[in-house]
Design a binder for these strands. Structure first.
Length: 584
RNA sequence: GACCCCGUAGCUCAGCUGGAUAGAGCAGUUGCCUUCUAAGCAACAGGUCGGAGGUUCGAAUCCUCUCGGGGUCGCCA
């Protein structure tokens, strides 16, 4: 049980004890009060607003209730002082012993410290990136990619069994355009003059290597053949190559998916037909004509009867066509089948990380999932807001059409993977993100991520110093757990342990709100406490971690250093950054 | 016509499900390396939290309205 849970239980118990004596009637069960470590250390180790929250139902002033409670609390052995403050807060100080036990817990659990059981081992699916294989990873993909990856780490830490999934469309217009462009580049490799890339095909040079590989594999086989013969084989080849490129690019920032699901397979293995039949059997499909969309000029709008899904029965603003006028499936049909495979597989929660430009997706897909799972499965979408790229204050217009893109590879080459990840993960995903290439490059050496890594490196440095000092003593975390931690009494030392105690709460809150950036800020604050402590040791020799001739104190402080390393490592694992042993 | 996101220091952003004097980094000013790595520390300066109402012990946070910026509203993906 964590310190906060313990205090919580004590508070509730004391209140229930005191209430009958005072003639208070507790009309509702108390659960909304908070128990937290206050920002201002003057406010004690732990603060609670229980008196203020319960004031109304009790019918007494918050300060009066708080005064009664503080008297009762003083009998608890973990609590050394309790006082009323401000409008009715109760500020508690806890015995050093409580904090020493907390540190032992950290040492015992290591990188698993902060793991939370809230997920209960439930399998969830997190889909992210999911760019179609028609071009390289670029700046626009990076945010969702890093966010999705960190969210997966976070949810794993919070006790979920996460499948990291990439879903891509390898059917339809886009991949046909890909194939045609590759064929053009292929002709180019044979010395044919192709001129400018025609409008409608993909510009940029990135398909040249693909064409070269095609030439190596197939020779001149497709040179003078009609499109009907080469379209399919070249498409399959190009899609496979592009997916490989994407995987390689993602690996540059440490991203690896567990499962790749593609549209073609879902169509070819009959899942799509099965889903269609299923909806038909449920009476959710009919033929009808939709009104033209609102608020948008539609020049080519032709009212025509189409096969529709009754999604308005499930909260959608309109029914949705499953087939286009030309008879092909509309994109939502394979997507519905894709989600059906996951429902069949037992997933009840699916999280999709999308760009803000996919705003309408959730409204369309949720009804289908409700229908296909009889309301048992749920899709959540997290919309990462747009990334605007600036170059020294000037907005860079990115467009795939003109071939003006900044690739993921360029970003990583110039800024480094850790800085890229950390910069993205110090923003709420819902906040529009301005990424100034020049500034981030300039600041890459002073990126806050190094501040955190530096704290870890300093810990390692202390350990290196300690080894010769204590050549006869084991200084592993497990061994240090058994040390007497009594010498840890300094205010700043206890403050650090207090911060350790916050970590599990940060994990939980971040997981509930799906906000991995909270982890970044927590780690930064933690590192700040450590650096301050370190520098105090420079001013005052008695505060150094290792004190020559005082082994009990040094070993106790080594335990603190080990604890720091464990929490930093535990947090950086969520961010996806490796803790370093030294800064170079 | 409807929906979503954002508006906090000169700049980039935090502010945990309503809490105590609104925070950090960068930029600016000033100190600190004979001592575990100065990629660090300490301090100064910088704000009508877009605006107006409301809810209550208490609002940057919740509600309504409003202004500004971005996104979406297709049989496109």
């Amino acid at each position: 049980m964590s310190i906060f849970q313990h205090i919580r239980a004590v508070l509730r118990q004391k209140l229930e004890e005191v209430a009958p004596q005072q003639g208070w009637v507790l009309s509702e069960p108390l659960s909304t009060f908070t128990v937290e470590s206050p920002r201002d250390p003057k406010h004690g180790d732990v603060a609670t607003n229980i008196a203020m929250v319960s004031a109304k139902s009790i019918g007494q002033s918050p300060r009066f209730i708080a005064t009664i409670l503080t008297e009762a609390l003083k009998s608890d052995t973990a609590i050394t002082s309790a006082e009323v403050a401000g409008p009715g807060f109760i500020n508690l100080r806890l015995s050093a012993h409580v904090w020493h036990e907390q540190l032992r817990t950290v040492l015992e659990q290591g990188v698993h410290y902060g793991d939370n059981p809230m997920g209960g081992g439930e399998r969830i699916n997190i889909e992210y990136v999911s760019a179609n294989p028609t071009g390289p990873m670029h700046a626009g993909h990076v945010r969702g990619a890093v966010f999705g990856d960190a969210l997966s780490n976070l949810m794993t830490k919070a006790g979920y069994k996460v499948t990291r999934r990439y879903y891509f469309n390898d059917v339809g217009t886009q991949v046909d355009v890909l194939a045609r462009t590759v064929h053009l580049r292929y002709r180019e490799t044979w010395g044919q003059s192709i001129g400018e890339i025609p409008a409608g095909l993909y510009p940029g040079d990135y398909l040249k290597p693909v064409a070269e590989m095609l030439k190596d594999r197939d020779g001149d086989k497709w040179l003078n053949k009609p499109e009907s013969e080469w379209l399919k084989p070249i498409r399959d080849f190009a899609v496979a190559e592009m997916m490989q490129d994407i995987k390689n690019d993602l690996a540059l920032i440490g991203i690896k998916h567990d499962v790749f699901t593609n549209e073609r397979e879902i169509i070819e293995n009959g899942t799509l037909d099965k889903v269609f039949k299923l909806l038909e059997d449920k009476g959710l499909i009919y033929t009808g004509t939709l009104p033209p969309p609102r608020g948008k000029e539609m020049e080519d709008w032709v009212p025509e009867p189409l096969i529709l899904f009754r999604s308005s029965q499930f909260g959608d603003s309109s029914d949705r066509p499953l087939k286009k006028r030309d008879g092909h499936w509309s994109y939502i049909m394979p997507d519905m089948a894709y989600h059906y495979t996951m429902i069949e597989d037992g997933y009840r929660l699916m999280i999709n990380v999308l760009g803000a430009d996919h705003g309408g997706y959730l409204e369309r897909m949720r009804p289908a999932i409700a229908a296909l799972s009889d309301g048992k499965a749920r899709l959540d979408a997290l919309f990462c807001q747009m990334v605007k790229i600036f170059n020294n204050g000037e907005l860079v217009k990115l467009s795939k059409r003109s071939g003006n893109i900044i690739t993921l590879r360029e970003m990583v080459d110039q800024v480094g993977p850790d800085s890229v990840r950390f910069t993205i993960l110090t923003r709420d995903f819902a906040t529009p993100f301005e990424f100034d290439f020049v500034k981030v490059k300039e600041q890459s050496r002073e990126n806050p991520v190094f501040y955190i890594q530096y704290a870890h490196a300093r810990c390692c440095s202390v350990l290196r110093q300690a080894k010769p000092m204590f050549s006869d003593t084991e200084i592993s975390p497990k061994a240090l757990m058994g040390q007497d931690l009594g010498p840890l009494v300094a205010e700043d030392e206890i403050a650090l342990i207090r911060a350790f105690a916050d970590w599990p709460k940060v994990v939980e809150a971040a997981a509930i709100s799906r906000e991995p950036h909270r982890v970044s800020f927590y780690l930064y604050d933690l590192a700040s406490l450590f650096h301050a402590l370190w520098n105090k040791g420079k001013d005052d020799g008695t505060l150094r971690f290792l004190i020559e001739g005082n082994k009990p104190l040094s070993l106790a402080r080594l335990a603190l250093v080990r604890g720091m390393m464990a929490v930093i490592a535990s947090g950086l694992a969520v961010i996806g950054v490796t803790p370093v042993e030294e800064m170079r």
